[in-house]
């Protein structure tokens, strides 16, 4: 399977940018039904994880681990487990479906008042996040509902052909 495009259509993201509250829903059954470009999806088409009996994770979940560390760890802590100022995503993701997840990440969240100063920025223009949003969701979903433990997954499926090239193209960089 060759990877061609990596960006979630921006229209999808923008459409979800408002009305966050109305979208609250628990994610459905995470059973993977289809694979494309290293990313598994569930019956509703939302990204999910595929963990083999030996603990080996699918490629998308592994990439999600890496890119989570790049973009989210500085607030949500190692392995999504929360920090002194941002929530534990392994709990939060139990109650958030893919649409709402994208709405949060693309739209950002603010809770600034006299008691707290909590701000998550909008990542809508950050390619390091948006090029890998499906993978980041798959990884966090695996952490929240798939029994994936802490730390770097010890084994993972190989990269699908063309993954690096497609990634660099999406990121707009030359290596």
């Amino acid at each position: 399977m060759t990877v061609t495009s990596r960006l979630v259509p921006i229209a999808f993201v923008v459409a979800l940018g408002c009305g966050v509250a109305a979208l609250a829903a628990a994610p459905g059954n995470p059973t993977p039904v289809k694979e494309s470009g290293g990313i598994w999806t569930d019956k509703d088409g939302a990204p999910t994880f595929a963990i083999a009996k030996d603990g080996s994770v699918d490629w998308g979940t592994f990439v999600g681990f890496l890119r989570y560390n790049d973009a989210c760890l500085r607030c949500h802590g190692p392995d999504g487990a929360g920090s002194s100022y941002a929530p534990d995503l392994t709990q939060a993701l139990k109650g958030i479906d893919y649409a709402q997840f994208i709405a949060f990440v693309a739209g950002g969240i603010q809770a600034v008042n006299t008691a707290q100063q909590l701000v998550m920025p909008s990542f809508a223009t950050d390619k390091n996040v948006m090029c890998f949003i499906q993978e980041i969701y798959a990884y966090l979903r695996a952490r929240a509902t798939g029994g994936l433990g802490r730390g770097r997954p010890s084994q993972h499926a190989p990269a699908p052909k063309g993954f690096d090239e497609a990634s660099y193209k999406c990121l707009g960089i030359q290596m």
Binding site: T125, N128, C131, G172, I173
Partner: peptide
Amino acid sequence: YPVAYTAGQPYV
């Protein structure tokens, strides 16, 4: 691993 630069966004 490789990352993209966007002004005002993390570059890690």
